[in-house]
Design a protein around this nucleic acid. Structure first.
Length: 194
DNA sequence: CCTACGATTCACT
DNA sequence: GTGAATCGTAGGC
């Protein structure tokens, strides 16, 4: 898959683009990790930050597809999203978990944990391991010259598990199956059960 | 201005 | 399995 094709997908349909993101490599310097779990959020979906309201925080979600939407939550964690913008229909994909590929020592020192399992198995953990914070909000993740960027999967992931999203309050479309996990990489996902 | 709370994680029990 | 930590954002007054 090429970056151009991935960007096209992101521009067209967040629900198609999200599973296509599985297997992509997230790169920052020496650090590399293979994305194994994502979630989709869409403007008509009550759990989406851009639901019915255009505020300064979500402004990047209205910008071009492929840029990073980074936000802080629980007063503790940064979250990395990729904007999947269709005209007048902002959407984003939350990167939830990845398999460490390279730069393991840097992941470890950023997270101060030793075990490989659990190093990147959650959106807050992943952001911490990559030293992602609000400074990266708005950068182009599909531009290889970006400090933090994404290399599309060479081959699409064949078996994709779909489940309901994590941490969604009742009444906010908590049951839509918009969480996508690479079945062959469950050990790196944030929770085993999908 | 002031308050409530969230796309979570970790340390405990 | 439960609860605390912790702060930017949004929304109400």
């Amino acid at each position: 898959m090429t970056a151009d094709y991935l960007r096209e997908l992101l521009e067209q349909d967040v629900l198609e683009a999200a599973p296509a993101l599985l297997g992509a490599t997230l790169v920052r310097g020496e650090r590399r990790a293979r994305i194994v779990e994502v979630e989709a959020y869409r403007a008509d979906d009550p759990a989406c930050h851009a639901y019915k309201r255009r505020t300064p925080r979500v402004e990047v979600m209205y910008g071009p597809a492929g840029i990073a939407y980074v936000y802080f939550n629980y007063g503790v964690h940064w979250m990395l999203n990729i904007v999947a913008h269709a005209v007048d229909d902002p959407a984003a994909i939350l990167i939830r978990a990845a398999e460490p590929i390279a730069g393991i020592d840097q992941f470890r020192s950023s997270r101060s944990v030793q075990k490989l399992a659990g190093l990147l198995s959650g959106p807050g953990k992943l952001a911490q391991a990559f030293d992602i914070d609000g400074n990266l909000n708005g950068i182009d993740l599909l531009d290889p010259s970006s400090d933090l960027h994404l290399l599309p999967a060479l081959e699409p992931v064949t078996r994709v598990l779909k489940g309901s999203r994590i941490g969604i309050a009742k009444g906010k479309w908590e049951d839509v199956p918009w969480r996508f996990v690479d079945d062959s990489a469950l050990e790196w996902a944030s929770r085993k059960k999908v």
